[in-house]
Simulated assay, not measured.
Amino acid sequence: MTTPGGNEALVRALLAVSRSMVALAVRNLAAMEADVTLPQYRTLVLLATAGPQRSAGLAKELDVAPSTLTRMCDRLERKLLVRRFHRDNDRRSTWLALTPAGRDLVGVVMRERQRELSALVQQAGLDASQECLDLLDRIVEASGELPDGLWWDRWEVSADPVDSVTLP
């Protein structure tokens, strides 16, 4: 595999780390008996990150067909993890938001992942340099994700009543 700029080794290492992170997420969800698939969980995480979303925008963000998102959210709504609503000024668009139970599920899974990652770092005897931490921050930013502290700030208010949430 050849990558632009000659970063083949970095790309291979990140690919391996990516597989590890997905495996960790799947194990966490299974261990918690959350009855949520990985795509459903990703939907909950996006709602925790960005707050209430138009269903069309969320489908685009997840790179799924609107009908796929509708079926996924039907299941999440039955599990009381998301709610659908319409804004007074736009009755045509369906909006999605986390319920308090959905927000709490995301928080519990994230905290468990943090605990497991902390154990992995300790087990491997790792101590990251500032250069390494900067590299990871740049990867997070380039992928469109939020730094951890800001993500938790958004998570904290992600299940507030819809009227009090600043919408995009």
Rank of each mutant, 00 (worst) to 15 (best):
A34P: 10
D35Y: 09
R27W: 05
D160V: 06
L44N: 08
L44Q: 06
A16T: 09
H86L: 02
T166H: 13
T94D: 09
L10A: 11
A30E: 13
W152F: 06
E131W: 08
V64K: 04
R54F: 02
A56C: 12
W95Q: 01
G5K: 10
R92L: 03
S143P: 00
P52L: 12
A25D: 13
N89V: 07
V140K: 02
L146N: 05
N7P: 01
P147V: 00
P52S: 13
G149Y: 07
V26P: 03
T99G: 02
P161K: 06
V11Q: 08
D35P: 08
M32K: 14
Q122T: 11
A128E: 10
E131S: 11
E131R: 14
R84W: 06
A48G: 14
V26I: 11
L150C: 00
S118A: 13
C73Y: 03
Q114V: 15
A25E: 15
D74P: 00
P161G: 05
L133N: 02
C132P: 03
T37R: 10
W155N: 04
L96M: 03
R84A: 09
S118I: 02
S164C: 04
V106G: 06
R54W: 00
A13T: 11
S118M: 12
L46G: 04
D160Q: 11
G125R: 05
L58I: 13
G6W: 04
A48W: 08
S20Q: 14
A30W: 05
L62M: 15
R78C: 02
P147N: 02
V26A: 09
A101G: 00
E61T: 03
S164T: 15
V109Q: 07
F85H: 02
D90F: 01
E141W: 01
V26L: 10
P147Q: 00
K60Q: 14
A50K: 01
V165Y: 04
L150R: 04
T166F: 10
L47G: 05
A25C: 12
E116R: 07
A31W: 05
V121M: 07
R84F: 09
W155E: 04
L136P: 01
R91L: 07
D88Q: 08
L29Y: 13
R113P: 06
D88Y: 06
S158V: 09
Q40R: 15
R91K: 08
M110Q: 10
V109D: 07
R91M: 03
S67Y: 01
A142L: 08
S93E: 01
V82D: 01
R115T: 13
Q130D: 13
T68K: 10
A97P: 00
L14R: 08
L76W: 05
P4Y: 04
E112K: 09
D90R: 00
S118N: 14
R111F: 09
L15V: 10
E145A: 10
L14W: 09
D90C: 00
T166A: 15
R71A: 05
P161R: 11
A9V: 12
L117P: 00
L133F: 02
L46T: 03
V109F: 06
L135W: 07
M21T: 11
G144W: 01
L29P: 14
R87Q: 04
L24P: 09
L120Q: 07
M1K: 13
A9I: 10
G149K: 09
A50Q: 07
L46K: 07
L146W: 00
